[in-house]
């Protein structure tokens, strides 16, 4: 390296070091009155405000509370989103109630499986048109205006969370447009979340008294879900993939 180049290189390094120092200082200032910083998300989003990256919506499912034989979450999902509620090969399932058994130990668990709203979603990675997308607040969605129905995302998803609509649909919920030729999956009931309500499955689970599902902002240290994640051992399904899922399980 010539003397001149070396000089430039060192200057650049110094600049970067200074920038990082300043950045750390600014971040410290911003986070010092933490409650104020996070207070915005706790109040919910105004209808005219865009989804903010200061929020990350997530779900915690306590499998020990998830009742055997109950599928209120799946039924509520079907009602809210206008799904058929059937499980045929061509029926959309945004949430599946599962009963799993470890044949070695005999341990049995019940749990709902749905889109895990990954931080690094493989479905978004592979989408050739940009229809599969992640909103700023971490909700993974399909923009049906852009979806060409190639189903690559369905193959990429490790959770089998996505469905394809094969047949023409009628009588959709005006708030949940969905139709033939598009891939779809759990939206965390984005239409409800945007008006500061919890997803239909969480509401149904609480209404039935199971309280197995908790929904909230993972980035708000004062939210119930953040406190629970801090206190209990929770599991990401297929954590080995490094997707950093928004849905976590407790008790499996």
């Amino acid at each position: 390296m010539s003397e001149q180049n070396k000089q430039v290189h060192e200057t650049a390094n110094n600049d970067r070091r200074d920038f990082l120092k300043v950045g750390a200082g600014v971040a410290g200032l911003a986070l010092a009155p933490g409650v104020l910083f996070y207070g915005i998300s706790a109040e919910g989003k105004a209808p005219d405000a865009p989804a903010s990256a200061k929020v990350r919506w997530g779900m915690l499912i306590d499998t020990s509370k998830c009742a055997d034989g109950c599928d209120s979450c799946a039924t509520a999902c079907a009602t809210e989103n206008g799904l058929s509620g059937q499980t045929g090969p061509q029926d959309s399932q945004w949430i599946r109630k599962m009963h799993i058994k470890n044949l070695q130990t005999g341990a049995e668990h019940n749990l709902p499986m749905l889109c895990q709203h990954c931080e690094n979603p493989p479905c978004v990675d592979v989408c050739p048109t940009g229809a599969s997308m992640k909103r700023a607040d971490g909700i993974v969605l399909v923009d049906r205006h852009i979806c060409i129905g190639c189903r690559y995302c369905m193959m990429a998803c490790p959770y089998k969370a996505r469905s394809f609509v094969h047949e023409p649909l009628t009588d959709q919920n005006p708030e949940v447009p969905r139709g033939q030729g598009c891939v779809e999956s759990c939206t965390f009931c984005v239409q409800r979340v945007d008006r500061d309500e919890t997803p239909a499955c969480v509401e149904a689970c609480s209404k039935d008294g199971h309280m197995a599902m908790m929904f909230g902002d993972l980035r708000d240290p004062n939210s119930d879900i953040a406190r629970a994640l801090q206190s209990y051992a929770t599991t990401e399904v297929r954590a080995d993939l490094g997707l950093n899922t928004g849905v976590r399980y407790q008790g499996i």
Partner: peptide, 16 residues
Amino acid sequence: QPSPMMTSVQPGGQMQ
């Protein structure tokens, strides 16, 4: 009664 939304899966091991 249990509706068809129920799925029963018995994998050899845990989900992970």
